[in-house]
């Protein structure tokens, strides 16, 4: 393993990444930017899973398998999400999250 690096170091990094992504999801007004922050959060979780795999379960590959599946789901999510953004832009001429308020009373 990496000398001097424990699982706490990796988990702290991924926690920080997750919180930064969460901040982006909460504050961004642009739908594409929200999706980008969401990708950051998903990647933090992936780093978590790989760290668990490599520090705690070296001989089983569960963590890496989960990461591969998460990456695939994230790609599918990005595809559908960006298609929705393009579609909303066509209909309303805006990609700002607060402009999509058709269901607001």
């Amino acid at each position: 393993m990496i000398p001097g690096i424990t699982i706490q170091h990796c988990l702290t990094l991924s926690t920080a990444l997750f919180c930064i992504g969460f901040y982006g999801v909460l504050t961004r007004r642009n739908a594409v930017m929200v999706l980008m922050s969401l990708e950051l959060m998903l990647n933090a979780v992936n780093l978590n899973l790989v760290a668990f795999n490599s520090f705690l379960h070296r001989s089983a590959f569960t963590g890496q398998m989960f990461t591969l599946f998460t990456i695939t789901i994230a790609a599918a999510e990005a595809t559908v999400g960006l298609a929705l953004v393009v579609s909303i832009f066509r209909a309303r001429r805006s990609v700002r999250v607060e402009d999509v308020d058709l269901l607001k009373g």
Partner: peptide, 19 residues
């Protein structure tokens, strides 16, 4: 690069390819 350091070579390559 982090994945490479954690000995998850295949995940690192998939990360570059897909993301």
């Amino acid at each position: 690069v982090q994945y490479l350091l954690l000995h998850a070579e295949f995940v690192a390559v998939v990360q570059i390819l897909v993301y």
